[in-house]
Amino acid sequence: MSRARRGSAAMRPPIRLFRNLSSKLAAIPMVLVGLGVFVGGTAWTIVHSFTDSRLLPRLRWVGLDQYERLWSTRRWLVSIENLAVYGVVSLVLTMCLGFFLAALLDRKIRYEDTFRTIFLYPFALSFIVTGLVWQWILNPDFGIQSIARGLGFSTFNFDPLYNPDLVIIGLLIAGLWQGTGLIMVIMLAGLRGIDEDIWKATRVDGIPVWKTYIIVIIPMMKPVFVTALVLVTSGIVKLYDLVVAMTSGGPGIASEVPAKYVYDTLFTRQNLGQGFAASTMMLVTVAIILIPWAYMQFREKRQ
C-alpha cells in the first residue's frame, strides 16, 4: 500500500516550508510569544513612552517630555534612590550570607538536609506572605521593639515600618529572609563542583581553611558568583510585591520603588505615557546589568 504511493510523491523534493510541518506548527506559540509579546510589547511600550498618552494610548509625539517629567518627579527620584540603596545592600548581604551559609553546610556537617530545608523554605513563600509576616514581627507595639522595651530597654527604638529613615532596613530584613536560601543553594552547588583534590592540596600545603576559601575557592567560583549576581540583581529590579504587602510605599513615599511607580502610574493615576517612560527606564537598567554579563558568557563560550 505504501509502495504504490512511493513513485509519485517521493520523486520531488517537498516544498521547504511544509517540511516538518508539525514541528513548525508546534513552534507557533513560541514565535507568537517571542515576537508578538516580548519583542512587540517592548517596542510598543518604548514607542509610547515618547507620547503624551494619558487614559488611553495614543501616538501624539512629545519627544523626551515624559522622561524629563519623570526625572523631575520626587516620587520617582525617591524610588530610584530606594532601589539603589536596597539593591546594593541586599546584593552584598545576600552574596556574603549565601556564600557563608553554603560554606558552613559544605563542612561535612550532620543534618545538612535539615539545615538546607530551613534556610530555603522562605523561598517557596510569596513576597506577600513574607511582607505580611515581617510587618507583624516589626510591629512597634507587639514586635521586636516592644519585647526589647519589656526587657528593660525602655528607650529602645526600632520601628522601621513607621520611620522613613529606617523603612529600607525593614524591607531588607524581609527580603534577605526570603532570598538568601536560593543563593545559598547555588553557592553550595558551586562549592560541590570544586575538585576535592584542591582541598587535599591545600591541606598538604598547610594553608588554613579560611585562607583557602579566600585565595583559592572564591576565585575558582567566579562563574557561580556571576550567575548569582545576575539573579539577585534582576530580582531586585522587580521588587514590588514585598513593598506593597509590607509598607504600601509608606510611610509617606519613603519606601516607593520603580516597579510600584510604574504600576500606580499606569493603573491608578492613568498617566500612561509617564508609566511607559518609567518602565522603559527599568528596561534600560536591566540592559545595563545584562549586556556585560551576556558578553562575558558569550566570550567564555567562544574559548
Binding site: R6, G7, A9, A10, P13
Partner: peptide, 13 residues
Amino acid sequence: GHNVTWEEPSKRG
C-alpha cells in the same frame, strides 16, 4: 527500484 529520495524513513523498506 523505487525512487525514495524524499520518502519517509519508515517507508523506504
